[in-house]
Computed example of a mutant assay.
Amino acid sequence: MSAPAPEVEQSALPVSDSQTYRRAFKDLREGLSQRELWLSLGWQDIKQRYRRSVLGPFWITIATGIQASAIGLLYSVLLDQPLREQLPHVTVGLIVWGLIQASIIEGSEVFIANEGLIKQLPSALSVHVYRLVWRQILFFAHNLLIYVIVFFAFSIWRDVHWTIIFAIPAFVLLVLNAMWVSIVFGIFATRYRDIAPILNSMTLMLFVLTPVMWSTKALENQGGQVADRARIVEIVPTFHFLEIVRAPLLGEDQHAYHWYIVGAFTVVGWIVAIFALKKYRARVPYWV
Rank of each mutant, 00 (worst) to 15 (best):
R51G: 00
G65Y: 06
I168Q: 08
Q48N: 13
L173V: 11
P285C: 10
V150E: 09
F171A: 07
S11A: 13
E9R: 12
Y147E: 09
L74W: 10
W180F: 11
S16V: 12
L13D: 01
F154T: 08
P4F: 01
A3I: 15
R191C: 04
V226R: 10
P122R: 00
A273F: 05
A167Y: 08
I118T: 00
T20F: 08
T190Q: 11
S123C: 07
I156R: 04
L117V: 03
R22D: 07
V212F: 04
L145M: 15
S182K: 11
L83D: 04
S108H: 03
F25P: 02
W270F: 08
V150Q: 07
K278S: 02
Q34Y: 08
S108P: 09
L132R: 10
W162E: 10
N177D: 15
W97L: 02
G186Q: 08
L13E: 10
G65D: 07
L78G: 00
V148C: 09
L209W: 10
F185V: 09
A5W: 13
L249K: 15
R229H: 02
V172T: 06
P197I: 01
L83G: 01
A5Q: 14
L250W: 10
Q254V: 13
I156E: 14
A282F: 15
S53F: 13
R246S: 07
V90F: 04
L125Q: 08
M202N: 05
R131D: 03
